[in-house]
Design a binder for these strands. Structure first.
Lengths: 205, 205
DNA sequence: CATCCAATGCAACAAGAAGTTGTATTAACG
DNA sequence: CGTTAATACAACTTCTTGTTGCATTGGATG
């Protein structure tokens, strides 16, 4: 797939310039308004080159994102579930707050069919869910969480609230806010529903 | 704004045909790919008519949405917070699951500036928040919730989880799932954080 | 360093969409 | 019925998109 007979100097420079320009465009105008011509102008690379090497603007951005996303991020490990989840939350917030992340999210939402853009978004989330699984696993080993705790519930709650705040409310994810959200999410999984209901029953009587 | 010298037969028919076509287009191709020509073809109305009456495709869809969104929805009132919130959640889910709602959401997310599309999305959410305020107010009067309960926390939690499930996970909002989400959200606001933390402290020791 | 040829640049073009304008036609309203 | 607002139609310009043939550049190779 990535074989080229001359990967050296110029080809590499062109490739990098085009990728940089395409991501900048993505951040500026969004996935829907991408065009080969704009990327060509912005990168200084002639449009015929882009048409011949990639064909469409989508393909360019796709490759750029794949190359960019290949950097693996270590799972937070502070010795405490809450702090781990806060770190994970900050990571998620940083990603979807940036213009590029926002554009990807918007495009992934709009794409009704399972297009290539959705694969990237899906990959992002499955990675987060996997990380959360590790975090929860460690917490169970430490005895901070009960044995059968479902990690997906925890991430979903936290991720959902971050997502909503950034995308809909358009407010920044501050540390105090995130801390509170994570706290209540961790409590929710720590106290099984039945017991929680029982307690609230007692309290309200 | 809405004055016209001949609001009768033909003008009305044209208006309705154009609005219907524009919303259908919005659902099909999304906000970003709207075009006057497509709406013209789809509605059977000549494009010059649309250009002269509305100017741009955005304006057409905007008016269509405003007219459509003017129908007021009554606040659920079942006598129980949880059931009220579930009803509200179902309403939210129905709205953002439909193709049109999805397109609006995607467009609102992508629009970095505060464009007209964002006003529609904002209006939708502020209405939900207002409804939740009424629901919570009633619950406080009934003694189901403590006096100072912030309604925004409750809606935000529920709305966020629905949003995430529909937009990111792309799963349907089933009644059992929604019920569980609302339950835990109501519990979270019913048990103040400090007490909740204390209890979990006791339980884990 | 000399040579080759893949990669890129360049210019001209075709195809189509977007928007405008002048005029003819239709039908709502009195 | 007559008036004229509202719409349809056709022709046109302009802009964007994508293609093609050819010239030029500069890695790679011996």
């Amino acid at each position: 797939m990535d074989e080229m007979k001359r990967p050296g100097g110029r080809t590499r420079r062109v490739r990098e310039a085009v990728f940089a320009a395409s991501l900048a465009e993505l951040a500026d105008v969004g996935w829907g308004s991408l065009s080969v011509e704009r990327i060509a102008d912005r990168s200084g690379v002639h449009k015929t080159t882009i048409y011949r090497r990639w064909g469409t603007a989508d393909q360019v951005v796709l490759e750029a994102l794949l190359e960019r996303g290949s950097a693996k991020i270590p799972v937070p490990d502070t010795g405490d579930v809450t702090r781990d989840m806060i770190a994970l939350g900050q990571l998620i917030a940083a990603n979807i707050s940036a213009p590029i992340g926002r554009s990807i999210a918007a495009a992934a939402i709009e794409a009704a069919d399972s297009s290539s853009i959705r694969q990237i978004a899906d990959a992002f989330w499955s990675e987060r869910f996997e990380q959360a699984g590790i975090i929860v696993g460690r917490a169970i080993e430490r005895g901070q969480l009960p044995g059968g705790t479902e990690s997906t519930d925890l991430v979903e709650t936290v991720a959902a609230r971050i997502w909503f705040r950034v995308m809909v409310n358009r407010l920044p994810v501050s540390d105090p806010w995130l801390s509170e959200v994570v706290d209540s999410a961790v409590e929710a999984v720590r106290i099984p529903n039945s017991i929680g209901a029982e307690i609230s029953e007692i309290l309200s009587s």
